[in-house]
Design a binder for these strands. Structure first.
Lengths: 246, 246
DNA sequence: GATAGTATCATTGTCGGACAAACAGACAGG
DNA sequence: CCTGTCTGTTTGTCCGACAATGATACTATC
């Protein structure tokens, strides 16, 4: 007996969306190109403008098109790490990912990232990293500042790998870490200073292009977060709070 | 002089979308809940149905709502790893990520994942992993089969960590790897057998709960891919092909 | 009584047309 | 050069409409 697969009617707005998306993936439409006006698209696809608009909302939500601030025409865009990250973070939060899973994953990847950064860091990326460390050392008074400083440090390390996939992979994790950190950091005061110390050691190792030491200190660093959570009395098996959207 | 930040008029369809999204993030609307019909939403928000529909397309594209196959009503869903991954993969491809960056990232994270899997693997996850290895050994004749088998192996290892973030982090990478593999695997024939050997060793190490050996063999495994690319004559600095959408 | 057919209702997909708001560009006046 | 004014374009939103089809209840048939 032959198996029939269910035949699916794809609604027009979806066909239009995928058609335009294909053009973008395809590079026929390149970043920054303005999209034709809705009425023109409606004419070309021979559908109503409402249908076009629904398709555009899909693409907009996928960050394949956007309109520049205060302008009217839509332009083609490439979704960046930031755009992607909160979608992933949001998804993870909806799956009730726990605090434990977050730092377990950090323990998995961050040491390797630090080691790779030590191998590939350039003069510029080291300068950026140094700036991030200095900024944290300078002001980590409020929980806000401290948390932002932590994030920037991790971002600078990831950027120093010279690999563009790494920051994008890391970013959703950071979002979750930060959401959890904001709750924790006020309850575990000594943590803030240990963070600064670890940052300096990781920085030194990367400056010296020493992958092994960079890996070790990053391990310590991430373990510190874990200890912070334990000390602060947070249940590490509680779901991580949903990252706030701006 | 005080700085004024640009005041932005958010269009109605966006406000509606974020309002509904908030309800979902918020768990007021939970997975599987049917969404009210469009006309009712239009009434509640006091906007036209067209506006509601544009908002729904946004949510649909964000995988926060979907409709089951062949049904009419929309239901609330949680975006899963698969849904997210192709969005991320697509984004990375649009950024002209290179083949080199893909395997560099794999070299970064996969060994650690294998080690973690060796620590936390349960009887069930080991069984699943064993099945994946067996399946690859059984049929990797066509490029299609071989590539699919490679993916399933990595997925099974990631699942064995017991950490739900890991598979979701890994999935976009797999998409890119596979897209590149399909081109490579026919040009580097010996690769296919080495893959099977490495898989067996990683499996054995995880079965024995030996993180060190698991890490080492996974390192070898990933390096094999790298070699495969080099042997096949593919320019490792060429952009990775966009992962195909289904 | 279970199954197949039928009637009815609800809901979505798409259409056409309409209009106010506001952006873009040209143009004139100080 | 800056400012105001005008005009055409494009978007955001609305209204009303209709066919197609999923959902549901009811009926006939074996």
């Amino acid at each position: 007996m032959t198996e029939f697969e269910p035949l699916r009617f794809e609604p027009g707005y979806r066909r239009v969306a995928t058609a335009i998306a294909a053009r973008i993936l395809n590079r026929t439409l390149r970043e920054g190109d303005p999209l034709p006006p809705e009425s023109e698209l409606a004419e070309q696809f021979a559908v109503n403008r409402s249908t076009i608009r629904e398709a555009l909302r899909e693409l907009e939500s996928a960050d394949l098109v956007a309109r520049r601030r205060g302008t009217k025409r839509m332009v083609v865009t490439r979704p960046g790490a930031e755009q992607i990250a909160d979608r992933v973070g949001q998804s993870l939060a909806l799956h009730d990912v726990t605090v434990r899973e977050v730092w377990q994953t950090l323990e998995l990847i961050e040491p390797s990232i630090a080691a790779e950064a030590a191998r590939h860091a350039t003069r510029e990326s080291i300068a950026a990293l140094r700036a991030a460390v200095a900024r944290y050392a300078a002001d980590h008074g409020t929980a806000q500042q401290a948390v932002a400083g932590v994030a920037d440090f991790f971002r600078a390390v990831a950027a120093a790998t010279g690999n563009r996939i790494v920051p994008m992979t890391q970013e959703p994790l950071l979002l979750l870490l930060l959401a959890a950190l904001e709750v924790m950091i006020d309850r575990a005061v000594p943590a803030r200073d240990r963070i600064g110390v670890a940052q300096r050691h990781v920085l030194a190792a990367i400056e010296a292009h020493d992958p092994t030491v960079a890996r070790d200190w990053m391990s310590k660093h991430v373990r510190d977060f874990r200890r912070g959570f334990e000390i602060s009395g947070i249940d590490v098996d509680s779901p991580v709070p949903a990252p706030r959207r701006d």
